[in-house]
Simulated assay, not measured.
Amino acid sequence: MNMTNKAIIHTDNAPEAIGTYSQAVKTGNTVYLSGQIALDPQKMELVSEDFAEQAHQVFKNLSAVCEASGGSLNDIVKLNLFLTDLSNFPIVNEIMSQYFAEPYPARAAVGVKELPKGAIVEADGVMVI
């Protein structure tokens, strides 16, 4: 893909990338959102070890990147959730309902062994604006 066809999205309201990636990349009216874990954007540390608190921070971070891209969480058409313990799925489902309005995005929830920095939940997605 030609670099002139994509815009790199960055906001100080979400954690800095902790690797060789961008917070999001916009091409046309589609925005590809990198995974967000529960890092406090200023301290770059996990907000808590509590699952619900981490899930809330994940959606706050994702929302900040969506807004920096010119959209909102409700513009996400595909959301991927990664959980280190799938027994937390009902909790993340309830918390997600506080951040998204119907119609909800297509979604996957995947159980994984571990996530960066010891996080227990991560989310990424694709947004169309």
Rank of each mutant, 00 (worst) to 15 (best):
M1N: 11
M1W: 09
M1L: 12
T4Y: 06
K6N: 03
A7C: 08
I9P: 02
H10F: 15
N13F: 04
N13A: 14
P15Q: 13
I18M: 13
G19M: 07
T20L: 14
Y21D: 02
A24W: 03
A24M: 03
A24N: 09
K26R: 15
K26T: 12
T27H: 09
T30L: 11
T30S: 14
V31Y: 01
S34T: 14
S34A: 15
G35P: 02
I37T: 08
A38M: 07
L39C: 09
L39E: 06
D40V: 08
P41Y: 09
Q42A: 12
Q42L: 12
M44C: 01
E45G: 02
E45V: 09
E45K: 12
L46E: 13
L46K: 13
S48E: 05
S48D: 09
S48C: 05
F51C: 05
Q54R: 01
Q54S: 06
Q54V: 00
A55Y: 10
A55D: 10
H56Y: 11
Q57G: 06
F59R: 07
L62Y: 09
A64T: 07
V65F: 07
V65C: 09
C66A: 05
C66V: 09
G70Q: 08
L73C: 05
L73P: 09
N74K: 01
N74W: 00
I76F: 00
I76L: 08
N80S: 11
F82Q: 11
F82R: 13
T84H: 00
L86W: 00
N88F: 06
F89N: 08
F89M: 11
P90H: 07
I91G: 04
V92G: 06
E94P: 02
E94D: 14
S97C: 04
S97T: 14
Q98L: 14
Q98G: 10
Y99K: 12
Y99Q: 09
A101H: 13
R107G: 07
A108E: 15
V110H: 06
V110S: 06
V112E: 00
K113T: 15
K113N: 14
E114Q: 09
A119T: 08
I120Q: 07
I120R: 12
V126H: 03
V126Q: 01
M127Q: 06
